[in-house]
Design a protein around this nucleic acid. Sequence first.
DNA 1: GGATGTGAACGACTTCACAGCG
DNA 2: CGCTGTGAAGTCGTTCACATCC
Lengths: 208, 208
Amino acid sequence: MKNIPRKTVERALLYIRTLKRLIKAKRSHVSSKELAQITGLTDVQIRKDISSFGKVGTPRIGYKTVGLKNILEDFILQRNTVHVVLFGVGNLGSAILRYPEFQKDRIKIVAAFDKDEAKIGKKINGIPVFAIADAPGIIKKRRAVIGVIAVPREAAQDIADTLATSGLKGIINFAPTSINVPAGIPVRDIDFTIEFLSLYCGILRNHH
Amino acid sequence: MKNIPRKTVERALLYIRTLKRLIKAKRSHVSSKELAQITGLTDVQIRKDISSFGKVGTPRIGYKTVGLKNILEDFILQRNTVHVVLFGVGNLGSAILRYPEFQKDRIKIVAAFDKDEAKIGKKINGIPVFAIADAPGIIKKRRAVIGVIAVPREAAQDIADTLATSGLKGIINFAPTSINVPAGIPVRDIDFTIEFLSLYCGILRNHH
DNA sequence: GGATGTGAACGACTTCACAGCG
DNA sequence: CGCTGTGAAGTCGTTCACATCC
């Protein structure tokens, strides 16, 4: 099988989620057109995406919901559970620790870290909070793969340095700043300010 | 001036943020190369982006930090403050209400809404919480432009319908589901699960 | 006939190579 | 020279048109 483009992977995760819902609703088949309606994409795009995983649909009938879900999950996620650690148990960090959708999707936050003595030793939503100095050991012991940065901007780079040397394979960065990490460790920035402002710019442009 | 591509706009917001920091550090000029280092982009990309706003740099010297910041802000944001309303004062919603970076960047959350009677009438970080039924009136009175959906998945579509008929011009959707809105209202999905899993997929792929 | 699957055209964005200028 | 600015080439992703199959 060829290399799947990143965008296709992202949409595939969306298809998996949609298929789960359809399966729960006892639907045995679904067409690309219906998937398009639900996801807000086009039917061609969906067929193109799915075709990268092989010929799995049947003309005139569509895709088997269960079969397609399994194919996508096997190929994309390999049925693993993703172990995650989080840095920064502030407002945003706590909200992430309590985010209810992760368990359903094989994401497990296995530890949190903060510099605040008052928080260390506590549990939030069952997840223990440790001192930052303990991070490397716990990351290895709990087989964490992804690190989440939810600390204030000023502290982000320090944390990123810690992460990079602890064996984590990827970073989600909520801090509103670019962080420097060694090549080979992918970073996903989730920057609320940028999202809000760029949406606003788009609105301004459309109204001339 | 031509139409600025969306990606360029997003990066321009990043440049503005970086320039502010440089200005605070009393730097009068900066080269595309240095901006590239700080932001993690390439210098060519930065010159290309900036050139869409006119010829503002001087060869051999670089860009004037203050001048460039003003040009970008004027063109992109038009020096407005963006008024935002938020739906869903749960863990994530509360964290967004308390997010400290918004004020610095001309984003102002002017009201929040929740269906929970216990929360209505309270203030969080100075932002009042109202009943959802009050949304259309308050959105108009406070000139809100963007609505944020931070409610559970099941409630997201209902809220989206409310938003669309209240005169809001754009939506930020944190709920892990696609929402249907009338054409002409742009939606930005910020989907934690998708971000985590697609990062993980990329990691899996790179390690074969 | 009505759906999937796909090479080809198209479009958007990035990178390259180099012109221009202080 | 060193840095900006930019047309051209290249890359990536989407859309189209149509062949294919039950």
